[in-house]
Simulated scan of single mutants.
Amino acid sequence: MTSTAHETNDTYDQGQEKHVTGATIWLTGLPSAGKTTIAYELAGRLRDEGHRVEVLDGDEIREFLSAGLGFSREDRHTNVQRIGFVAELLASNGVKALVPVIAPYADSRDAVRKRHETEGTPYVEVHVATPVEVCSVRDVKGLYAKQAAGELSGLTGVDDPYEEPETPDLRIESHNQSVQESAAALYALLTERGLA
C-alpha cells in the first residue's frame, strides 16, 4: 500500500508540474452577490484540469473556525484575518484557495493581501460587484427579507458598511452575465498570470 501511494505522489509531481503554483483568489461582494456560486463553478473547472483546489466558504468558516465571533467590526476583521491565514497556508502549499467571503472592510482585505505579499504567495482580489437591489431580489439566504422585517440588523451593504475595493484585480458584474461567463473571466485572468 505504501509503495502505491509513493508512486502516485511521484506521478503527480512529474505529470502535473504546471499545476503546483498555489494562489488565493478572494471574491468579495455583498451577500447574495454570487461569490460562492462563481467560486464553485471555477473550482470545478480548475479541478478538471488537475489543480488542487479548496473553497473556503464563509458560512462554513464561521461555523468551524470562527465560532463565537459576532458581527462587530472587530469580529469581522478577526474572521477575515483567520480566513486569510488559512488561505495563504493552503496557497503556499500549491493549492488554489478560492475564498467567497464578503470581507466588508478595506483595511481587513489589505492586511490579507500584505500577508500574501510578505510570504511571496500569489493573491487575486475579485470584486463581485452586484448592486444591492439585485442581491436583495436574489436573497439566497433570506437575509434581506429578515432585515426588512426588522428581524436582523447589521446587514452588510444595507445597515452596515461595505467598502468596495477601489482597485480589484478583476471586477465581475454577475448581474450582467451568466455564472459560466463570470467564472470564465476569472479563469482568463488566472491564465494571464500563469496561475491556471
Rank of each mutant, 00 (worst) to 15 (best):
G68K: 00
V95S: 03
A97I: 08
V99E: 00
D75M: 03
Y123E: 07
G120F: 09
T121P: 11
N93T: 06
A87H: 13
Q81S: 15
A33S: 11
T11C: 13
A97D: 14
R45T: 07
Y105K: 12
W26Q: 02
Y12P: 00
R113F: 11
C135S: 11
D57E: 15
E119N: 10
R138V: 00
V128N: 04
G70N: 14
A33R: 07
D13H: 01
I61F: 07
H51L: 12
I38L: 09
L65Q: 08
C135Q: 07
E63T: 15
V134T: 10
R138F: 03
D13A: 06
N93A: 11
A87R: 03
Q81W: 02
I83K: 06
L56E: 08
V99L: 08
V134D: 14
A129N: 07
T78F: 10
Q81Y: 08
A33T: 01
P104I: 04
S136E: 13
E7G: 15
H19R: 13
T24A: 09
T121Y: 05
H6E: 15
D48W: 08
G84R: 06
A91G: 05
V101P: 10
H19A: 09
A23F: 03
I61C: 14
C135I: 09
A106R: 14
H19F: 10
G84P: 11
V112A: 13
A97N: 12
R115Y: 01
T121W: 07
E17P: 02
V132R: 02
P104G: 12
E133S: 04
A129V: 05
V132H: 01
A33P: 02
R62T: 06
R113P: 13
I102N: 07
R45W: 03
V140A: 13
G15F: 00
R138Q: 04
H51V: 03
L89R: 10
P104Q: 08
E41H: 04
F85Q: 09
R47I: 02
R82A: 11
E17A: 02
G50Q: 08
A87C: 09
L56M: 06
V86T: 10
E133M: 00
D13E: 04
A111D: 13
L89W: 14
R82G: 10
A33Q: 01
D107G: 05
P31D: 08
Y105I: 11
Q81P: 14
V20P: 00
L98T: 00
R52T: 00
T37V: 06
T8V: 11
P131L: 07
A103Q: 13
F71D: 15
P131M: 05
T28Y: 05
I83A: 12
A97Y: 10
G70Y: 04
A23G: 01
V86N: 08
G84S: 13
G70A: 15
G50L: 02
A111F: 10
Y123L: 12
H19M: 11
G94W: 03
Y105W: 07
T36M: 01
E125H: 11
S66D: 12
P131K: 01
V80Y: 03
I25H: 09
R52S: 06
F64L: 04
T36Y: 04
N79D: 11
T130Q: 07
V124T: 12
I38R: 02
T121G: 04
E63K: 15
